[in-house]
């Protein structure tokens, strides 16, 4: 067993885990933050995307001990509990950008990262190219692309949309 310590959604957390524990397992099974999903075994689907020190990363392809001391943000940490949604979450709701919702947490975490890197004015091509690591089996992507363009614009005006 190995001791891990990190900050998750602004709170210091610790755990005693088997070295094989992936970050996604630590989040879901130890911290009970089940918003982060696992959609594949091959690091390709992006359902597990979280922010590690402010950068989108696949939590299924990272051991918990690798992010010792790091700052992790999950879908649960984007907005205040019981407060208004983060502008990107709101844009997904407004634009009907989900059906089953399985890919949605990863999509939103990737989307916020895209805005941080590419700015608030995103064209369709950029969004589609940047979403290469996120797979959706339901929507056909059109509304996801629309939501991200709208969410990016809304983030410009929102106090909630600062960098991690």
């Amino acid at each position: 067993m190995t001791a891990v310590a990190m900050t998750v959604n602004g709170k210091a957390v610790t755990g005693d885990v088997d070295p094989r524990t992936l970050l996604v397992q630590f989040l879901r099974e130890h911290l009970r933050l089940t918003g982060t999903h696992v959609g594949c075994d091959t690091s390709q689907c992006g359902a597990c995307v979280v922010h590690i020190d402010g950068k989108a990363a696949k939590s299924c392809t990272t051991f918990a001990w690798q992010v010792q001391g790091a700052n992790i943000t999950t879908i649960e940490g984007l907005a205040e509990p019981n407060g208004p949604l983060h502008p990107m979450q709101e844009a997904f709701r407004e634009n009907h950008a989900l059906q089953c919702g399985y890919c949605t947490p990863g999509m939103i975490m990737s989307a916020v990262d895209i805005v941080w890197r590419k700015g608030n004015d995103l064209d369709e091509n950029t969004i589609r190219h940047e979403l290469e690591g996120n797979i959706c089996r339901c929507t056909g992507y059109h509304n996801i692309v629309k939501a991200i363009a709208a969410g990016a614009k809304a983030m410009e005006k929102s106090p909630m949309a600062k960098t991690a």
Binding site: S43, G46, V49, I52, K55, A56, A57, K58, T61, T62, S110, D113, I114, R117, E130, L131, E132, G133, N134
Partner: peptide, 8 residues
């Protein structure tokens, strides 16, 4: 790959 792969 994709942005998340490139971050790691």
């Amino acid at each position: 790959g994709d942005p998340a792969v490139r971050h790691r």
